[in-house]
Design a protein around this nucleic acid. Sequence first.
DNA 1: CAGGATCCATATGGATACTG
DNA 2: CAGTATCCATATGGATCCTG
Lengths: 113, 113
Amino acid sequence: MMKVTSKEQGALVVADVLEIIGGKWRGLILAKLCDGPKRFNELKLGLRKVTSSTLTKELRHLEELKMIERAVVQKSPIVVEYRMTTHGETIKQLIYQMIDWGLEHRKKVIEGK
Amino acid sequence: MMKVTSKEQGALVVADVLEIIGGKWRGLILAKLCDGPKRFNELKLGLRKVTSSTLTKELRHLEELKMIERAVVQKSPIVVEYRMTTHGETIKQLIYQMIDWGLEHRKKVIEGK
DNA sequence: CAGGATCCATATGGATACTG
DNA sequence: CAGTATCCATATGGATCCTG
């Protein structure tokens, strides 16, 4: 069911993962990209109120972590597309599980309050 | 495979979940409590360098979210135990999946760099 | 369209000292 | 042992304006 080694390193590894999906925006960006590639402004509009500079910073961070990649689709007017890398794709199941758990939690705790 | 409704609410729900496991300590605390109940100082020592005041704040927050509960086991000298609530238990699988993914990520990206 | 630059607000968490 | 209280540093993200 659960590897012993995983349990022992548990907290440390969780910290790694939180570096990727934690913070106010990174998890949300990844969730959006689970649907498929998105352009800069698509992400910007999809995330309620994030500013350009913040979005850029977060995207760069996810790029450094090899989770997403940036592709210039066309220039002048420039069009950029962000998409998950092959490695990034592997986090999809985790994101989906977060969503499923979150929906249950919402029913039980938030609405049931 | 994935419910459509989940996908659409995706980012919003992810934000809910990140409120619980995000931040610098909350996910780590939950990971520790996956092993079973822990006392205040056990948690404090287990998490590299967290101060009492910070740990207290984070624990209170997780209590408000109905994820953990505090139980006074004995008084004078007081002994307190923190453990997951029934609802909190439901997040275990998510934490474990985070750990599993994190270990893979570590191999592929961090060490493989 | 997609950002860079600059400056700034606030949230998060920390240091230190003290207590029932 | 398990906190509280007070004060404080910094990280995170935001506002605004500008540009190839």
